[in-house]
Design a protein around this nucleic acid. Sequence first.
DNA 1: TCGAGCTGCGCG
DNA 2: AAAGCGCGCAGCTCGA
Length: 550
Amino acid sequence: MSSSPLVVDLETQTPTGKPDFREDIVERVGWLEEGAKTAKWAGCVCPLAGVWYNHKSVLMHNAMYDFGILHRLQRWDLHDMGVHDTLALAYALGEQDLSLKGLGQKYLGVQTVTHSQQEKIGPEQYHAQDLWLTQRLWGKLRGMERGTAYDIDRALIPALIDCSYRGYEIDQERLEQATLAAEATCGRTRKAFERLVGEVSILCSRRKKTTKKQGTEYIETFGPPSINSPIQLQRYFGIDSTSKETLDEIAKGDDDQALAAALIGQWRKSDKLLDTYFYPNRRKEKLTGLFNITPSESGEGGTGTGRLSSERSNMQNLTPALERCLRAPDGYLLMRADYPQLELRCAAELSNDEYLIGAFQEGRDLHEETRAWLGLDSRVKAKNFNFGAGLYGGGADYVSRIVGRPRNQVAELMQKHRQLWTGWWNWTEEHWRRVQRTSYSVAPEPFLHKRYIPLLAGDHTKKAAVNHPVQCMAVYICKEAMVRLFREGWLLVNQVHDAIHCYVPSDDNIDLRKQQFREIMESTAAKYLPRIGAAPVDVKVGRYWSQEEA
DNA sequence: TCGAGCTGCGCG
DNA sequence: AAAGCGCGCAGCTCGA
């Protein structure tokens, strides 16, 4: 049994154009054993079976992808095999360029042969260089690693591969009902809107036409605005954004425009449901998505904070109307739990804010206290203030909007908030100074996930810098809980930042399972929130994700 | 007809 | 110019 990992690299074909380990086709497999003088290659994954069991772990550059394929083709056990991944490691270290070639140049000074030059050295040599590069890079980057972020991420890789194959079962009958209802709303609101604006005429489109004789001219068409055209609606209302918020404001009036705005709001809601959530899932048995820990080698997708992202389908932005149609397969129940106020608790812990810590320890209502302290008229406004201005660094204009006060009263509100959350505000300034010195934001101990902060990017920079440690700490707590669940054999289905979903067999002892689920999540949080203590985690169970009526 | 870029909106 | 942070995706717009 070799202690150093078996390096593996797959050459694949992507039929859909976008890489997807659940479907892509393997063309060649390369591997490199410890002490071997040469890399080996094969046209299929079969020969690997005789090699891998001599190793405790495998090493790849982008193991989510390669290991995901090997699991599919060879049933490589997701639980037994340790995984190392130079992509995940580089990500946790805050690297900008996550490509193997870029990292090789930066850390090893290796100038790789480009794809167009591969004829010169032959395909075998060309592909072998990636194996050597990965192996050497791993040794180099491991030496730079300080915190636990990478170890949590690499343990999560098999769990997320598992998740990406599992998915929810779709109840087509419920989906059909929901579709019919949404179509009815769409038709009704569109017709009502058309009746309302039938007489109006605005500029509908202007397209440039370049002719040799007359140079550039514009062809314009006029008519009533279409409900689905933001630019036409802008002209109709005489505004420069037709976002939901703006339309809600207009809808408060009592003229034709107010009615039109209300209709657009209803139409958009149902149209969004149909186009994004209902139609794409018709006649599909399962809803599954790919989870990303890191951006791709080319920098697409993924997050900068350590959060996961999900695509094809995105499992992290499903809406309640679709959640009602999603369920566990026959013989299973869906168990789901989320961490209440996890980000706020992390903010309190990492900034050592005495007030916040005390409030959490005594279980007081933070937003209500903020409301009273600032003299606001609703708890919702206070909550928006705490998040928008407190956690995410919103400025005076933003605060002015959310609390509905003129700008000249805002500075006073901000000042008062600083007196309440003293520790937090001090921490943000201190952290911002650190980031300015180093150009990196580092998440708290023991995670130490790094995010590169380009200091010349404007005001957004400070907000992103301050937000990173909070969001990062919260999600690594959730990730570690997932890792523990996975290791103990739970069937993970989904993660939505601070929420985890699993399947359990219906004939298990459900109360016991709920208790175990809660214990794993609570003890993981308690480990990293020693001063605040375990947040109570409420575990919900049922056949469907959401049982609420439409 | 294609796509890049934008707007709008779903989630935490 | 103004912007609360973090995502992915669908449709629209408009030039090529």
